[in-house]
Design a protein around this nucleic acid. Sequence first.
DNA 1: TCTGGGGTCCTAGGACCC
DNA 2: TCTGGGGTCCTAGGACCC
Length: 418
Amino acid sequence: MKEIFALVDCNNFYASCERAFNPRLEGRPIVVLSNNDGCVVARSNEAKALGIGMGVPAFEAEKVMEENNVEVFSSNYALYADMSSRVMKTLSSFTPDMEVYSIDEAFLNLAGFNCSLADYGGKICRTVKKWTGIPVTVGIGQTKTLSKIANRIAKKSGKADGVQDLTDAAFLNEILAKTAVEKIWTVGIKTTIKLKRAGIETALDLQKADINWIRQKFGVVGVRTVYELRGISCYPLEQNPPVKKSIAVSRSFGKPVESIEGLKESVASYCSRAGEKLRQQGLAAGLMTVYVTTSRFIKNRYFNSHAIEFPTATSDTMELIRGALFCIGKLYRSGFAFKKAGIVLNGLVSEKRIQGNLFDSVDREKSQRLMQAVDAVNTRLNCPLRWAAEGLNQPWKVKFNKRSYRYTTRWDELPPVA
DNA sequence: TCTGGGGTCCTAGGACCC
DNA sequence: TCTGGGGTCCTAGGACCC
């Protein structure tokens, strides 16, 4: 049976989440900033029209934002995550055959549907908007890559129903001829430069490229992309999210850290978060890498990392913290203004399959009970338990100066009705 | 002055083995 | 002095995604 993918993509997702709870924002330019209010990570259409680019530093866009009364928000991840799950739940009512691809995108398998796909897509858009307040766009194609292109066309053309079906379109090639290579999924900046140097400018050029040459220059990833453009599916729908291979927690500091104590506090708090993630997913880590760095944007950048192996894979926050503090001891150099630190956990195994160690000195059962108790308390409290090593004042902590209320996940932040 | 965070996959090259 | 070849495994780094 011919495969048919629909890519459902939320429009300007973070900006739309803000708007969903604040009708005053309808029709107004909105910008959402990254951690520390550093970069622009989402823009409403009105903000895009002002020429505010994706990923630009907030200070560079400050002038244009001020002059145009742009509504600026810090990231409100609790709100976006909750809105995302509402959208995904709505989508799952249209087909169980679905892959949640990112916080704001999902692939649906529409193979074998005996109705007009464009009509069905329109129904998806209307329902999601009605049930969640989030506008979405649907792109339909024979492969994931083509559904991505279809989605882009639907967004760009501003069609009222928000759907573009490219499955049997006689004009598919016409569309591909108008699609620049850099707009194709899996074609990034480096590949774009190489392709253009070889005279390949459009998706249609790439679709017709010699497969052996592609294999040689761009490896299997390039080959898959060419096949996908030809309508041969290389990326199947992944319904069960694969088990994670690494878990990372890192943050830029709200203000630079020069002391070893500051670095220790920050990585301790990242360990606390990483431990929660491990336990939520029923995993334990065998390896930990800790890194610290000064600003990426200065000369003489200092970056260094140190890795340790745990004698027995662990999900115990206290053990993670001990390891991380040891690493910081190896990494710290005085006289630097550190801008960021992070930890990465690898060698992840299922909690149930931890390889015992003869010389293990930790009471695993006791530590598990303690962690369960901490997690249970923290899911119920707005002010969570913290480990002493995380410090009290945390002057390095990320800044969120313009965060909206966490309307859907905190009782104390419900929107008031006047 | 101010520049995000969390992932995956692939490849090349080194270590090691027989 | 001459000094093979094939295979696997692991890791670091590159490229890309949202």
